[in-house]
């Protein structure tokens, strides 16, 4: 019954806040190694969908399977499941009272019981990858927005996740810092990790996405490869949306 090949299988996902119905039945499969980019007008439910995937929001209805396990079931240890899919937030949400290195190592040390020396070493190699190893002992308040978001991505990577969810990772950044974050994300996409990314960066979407879904009024209005979506949009609302932002 459950598609075993899909890493994430979502069926009939609904979410409402009181009378406000944000998601109205979303069905989708996300496969390993896929880079799924979610686009859509604001308020269409794309962020809520992303937050439902790791249960930061509890779905009102529907089921989400991660590697065949229904994570919406009450018996599931959601904390264990969440360790497989890290999240990168719009506002970074680094821990301001911890150094950059501690931000990266606290989860592996406390949750994966990695020895401190090993966690430190691994964190440093991840920081080196994004060119921030000299900031290891700085505090988040000493970093620029772009650096903070790169650290946030590193924090996610330090947990060796199967997938990373990006919730508008560049929306809170100064325009000049968007590039450095997208660069890191492109490199990640090429490394083969599964990514689900809510973004308004259409250039990034076109270049990196393996699949693009367009959200409108709480449902998936269109879904396809970047070429299909950008060059030959079928849905009139998607056409309207693209004409406004491209």
């Amino acid at each position: 019954m459950v598609d075993n090949k899909a890493m994430i299988h979502v069926e009939g996902l609904c979410k409402s806040f009181g009378d406000n119905h944000v998601l109205n039945g979303v069905d989708i499969d996300i496969h390993k190694g896929e880079v799924l980019v979610i686009i859509g007008p604001s308020g269409c439910g794309k962020s809520t969908f992303l937050r439902c995937l790791n249960l930061l929001e509890t779905p009102s209805a529907g089921r989400i399977f991660l590697d065949g396990v229904d994570i919406t079931a009450p018996s599931v240890n959601i904390n264990k499941q969440r360790q497989k899919m890290m999240m990168v937030f719009q506002h970074f949400n680094l821990f301001p009272h911890k150094t950059i290195l501690e931000n990266l190592t606290i989860a592996p040390i406390k949750l994966k019981k990695l020895p401190k020396a090993e966690a430190d070493e691994k964190a440093m190699s991840i920081l080196r990858r994004v060119g921030l190893e000299d900031k290891a002992y700085a505090y988040p308040s000493q970093l620029s927005g772009g650096q903070k978001q790169r650290v946030a991505i590193c924090r996610a990577l330090a947990m060796d996740p199967e997938m990373i969810l990006f919730d508008e990772p560049t929306s809170a950044l100064d325009p000049e810092m968007v590039g450095e974050v997208l660069e890191v994300m492109k490199e990640l996409a090429n490394s083969g990790i599964t990514m689900v990314c809510v973004t308004h960066e259409m250039g990034f979407a076109r270049e990196v996405a393996s699949k693009i879904i367009f959200f409108d009024q709480g449902v998936i209005a269109e879904c396809g490869t970047p070429d299909e979506v950008f060059s030959n949009p079928k849905n009139p609302r998607l056409r309207d949306f693209l004409s406004k932002i491209l």
Binding site: N79, R82, Q83, M86, M87, F89, N93, P96, A107, R155
Partner: peptide, 27 residues
């Protein structure tokens, strides 16, 4: 404390209590 701190802790896989202890209470 900003709600994002809670979400960051929980999304890393920490329980509610662990998030409280490591991230919220110190701040």
């Amino acid at each position: 404390i900003d709600k994002g701190q809670f979400e960051a802790g929980r999304s890393l896989g920490f329980t509610y209590a662990q998030t409280m202890w490591h991230f919220i209470l110190p701040q």
